[in-house]
Write a protein that binds this DNA or RNA. Sequence first.
DNA 1: TTTT
DNA 2: TTTT
Lengths: 139, 139, 139, 139
Amino acid sequence: MNRVVLVGRLTKDPDLRYTPNGVPVTTFTLAVNRTFTNQQGEREADFINIVVWRKSAENAANYLKKGSLTGVDGRIQTRNYDGQDGKRVYVTEVVAESVQFLDTKKEQGNYQTTNQTNSDYPFVNDAQSVDIKDDDLPF
Amino acid sequence: MNRVVLVGRLTKDPDLRYTPNGVPVTTFTLAVNRTFTNQQGEREADFINIVVWRKSAENAANYLKKGSLTGVDGRIQTRNYDGQDGKRVYVTEVVAESVQFLDTKKEQGNYQTTNQTNSDYPFVNDAQSVDIKDDDLPF
Amino acid sequence: MNRVVLVGRLTKDPDLRYTPNGVPVTTFTLAVNRTFTNQQGEREADFINIVVWRKSAENAANYLKKGSLTGVDGRIQTRNYDGQDGKRVYVTEVVAESVQFLDTKKEQGNYQTTNQTNSDYPFVNDAQSVDIKDDDLPF
Amino acid sequence: MNRVVLVGRLTKDPDLRYTPNGVPVTTFTLAVNRTFTNQQGEREADFINIVVWRKSAENAANYLKKGSLTGVDGRIQTRNYDGQDGKRVYVTEVVAESVQFLDTKKEQGNYQTTNQTNSDYPFVNDAQSVDIKDDDLPF
DNA sequence: TTTT
DNA sequence: TTTT
């Protein structure tokens, strides 16, 4: 059981790339405002890295931009790789299964489904079946 | 909106500490098994760092140990601090609002509530009202 | 563990009432659009009844209206009572712990915390400590 | 956005049926203990109806029984039909996308994915693509 | 640095 | 009894 739901705004425009096998992957950071204030009475935010695969990746890249109010439904993923300085780098990010565009009049959503092979299927998802090379991911 | 629900097992015994003002804080890592297998047909896990505050921190330290099946309901928090090598360190972790012990017969739960001041309350929570010094946190 | 997160639109203006002891309670129905289409290629919705207590109830009544895009974080509650025709009526609804207004520029949120006694506290919540008489609830 | 996560115990053995087109569907009720107590100091539960489709339906029927500790990840669905007394009946239930068996040593999970047609796929899901006749559902 |  |  690993479930995450977030609503926040993109800190920058989304970043669409392709894996060596041509699978689209979009990354962006969501700023999610906290519901409480800190000692100084300020409302802070958490900055959460999001990864979206396949058709949803292309939709996110097309419809989202810096500042877009966005809902994300997905799961937390951890991975690690060797940094350029030789030390191990640990990454925690959210793999989106669904991205909802909340700024538009019709708040259109994109759903993906897990481990999909048949890609002419309308709701495509997750792409854990695809090799994720660390350097394909911009985070 | 920032919501996380996890079920997994502790990778080690939990670690209970106290802030300078005496607030209990427990940390542990949850291994959450994935529902799908990788290229080699193996089932992998995500390793997610959890922070629990106040009464729930003490309960978690008392009732959980390495391997305990545990449910966590909380939110993702990001923070950063200057590492000993001078580079900025970015941390993503889950602040638990509720921890449920799933191994025991009665799967007893602990609920905390946010920004609580009155601590003789049975379900105490979150402690964002408390100064969190980075070096109080073991992650 | 009982967690619900929804984003949808109010089907009507919210309904604010008070319990006999003067506790505010607001109810409304959220239309949550599905991510998939039915046999006829239409996109349907689920219509989910929401209950909000205390300070958040008053905020919801002030800031929300028919059509407002709204996020809800809460839990599923079931209860039953004897209907006027003598048969038992079973109700399933969502008790909101947090309501987020997604239409406004600052998408202001309201957080409540559970079983709160001290009510001059900024984030008040849930009111399970309060007697809920069935006929105080409009559903 | 419509997400539900529950952990609870089956109130009875699960009920496996098949739609006219042969699609397996299992239903059961989860008793989810509340984290707080009522006026009398008792800990109550919510009783939530769950619907599981396809492969997960068969797995749930095989592995779960009355009392099984079970995690459910899914979405709230509302529907209505004409009751035998001529009045409209309104139903709120949770359609499970994933069911996790928490009693077993390996807490095996079952994942489904949405709107799947190709059923030799390992993680099959949701079956909203399938006609749901109201009288196929025991609730 | 990882659990069953 | 349903929203955009």
